[in-house]
Amino acid sequence: MRHRGHRRTVPLCLRQLERVMDLDIIAIVGIAMIVTVFAVLLREERPEMALLLALAFGIIIFVLVLDKVGVIIDLFRELTSKAEVDEFYLLTLLKILGIAYIAEFGAQICRDAGEGTIASKIEMAGKILILLLAIPIITAVLEVVVRLLP
């Protein structure tokens, strides 16, 4: 009986988790629909307000997803410790990922506002920062290659 009960709890938890995820995605899509309608309506009369609306929507989505990102980072940490890899590399990769997302987000907003030049500048800054953060990893690879050589 006890074994059966234990079996029953696992699918329940999974089902609850799935339900929460479904609710989240439904909420996000619902908000996105509303914002899209408002943005379309506003773009004709007040394009600057439409831009602000898109910006606010982006921030809301980011906040909604933020606590889920924590779970993913925990998984990365666990995998890193199991792989016996220095956590410094994982932190660098996560920082790079964050820079990439923020740069994309900013560039997209600028493109929506019709400022393609500014968007490309943001992307360029993002690329430079990513390369800057990757320097320790590149150096480590070079050191290993040098060690391999006789």
Partner: peptide, 22 residues
């Protein structure tokens, strides 16, 4: 998790280096 635009290539390179070093 990578974004699908310009910076993707750069992050992919760094991930590749990470795999190489490990």
């Amino acid at each position: 998790l990578l974004p699908s635009r310009e910076t993707r290539k750069f992050v992919e390179v760094v991930v590749g280096l990470f795999v190489m070093i490990t």
